[in-house]
């Protein structure tokens, strides 16, 4: 909880500093935005680690396939990075680059999901074959 309050205060201070720097030149203010986003994300990820452990425990209890969970986790990580990068690009006035990166992330996630889709097709084949 202490980290959250610290982050909220830091972000508020950083917003004011970004406004001050924006008057002099946009380049340094964008770098400040990137640094703040990276710091807040690092803090957020430290809270996500126990949640990941819980998910792995649930997977062990439910005897689920570890590959499926791994693909899901990778998709979440790629989506997170792409979303934050896209938002920063949009803030810097380069929305096109951000959107392109988000498109790349979508393509990579689809590529990662190919084994899952193959499994689904095989399952459908088995079910329909049995009928």
């Amino acid at each position: 909880m202490d980290v959250f309050l610290k982050a909220a205060a830091g972000v508020l201070v950083a917003v004011i500093l970004v406004l001050v720097l924006m008057k002099q030149g946009k380049d340094l203010s964008v770098l400040l935005i990137v640094a703040v986003c990276a710091m807040v994300l690092c803090a957020a990820l430290s809270y996500l680690q126990p949640i990941k452990d819980l998910i792995i425990r649930l997977q062990t209890i439910g005897q689920l396939d570890s590959d499926t969970l791994s693909i899901l986790l990778k998709a979440v990580g790629i989506g997170l990075i792409a979303e934050v990068t896209g938002l920063i690009c949009a803030d810097a006035g380069n929305a096109a680059m951000g959107k392109t990166l988000q498109f790349l992330a979508s393509a990579v996630i689809l590529w990662l999901a190919i084994p899952l889709l193959n499994e689904l097709l095989e399952l459908l084949d088995t079910i329909l074959g049995a009928i």
Partner: peptide, 16 residues
């Protein structure tokens, strides 16, 4: 969280 980094970057920006 390293709040000092925010102030360091802002200080460099203002000095520059």
């Amino acid at each position: 969280m390293d709040i000092e980094l925010i102030f360091r970057i802002a200080a460099v920006g203002i000095i520059v």
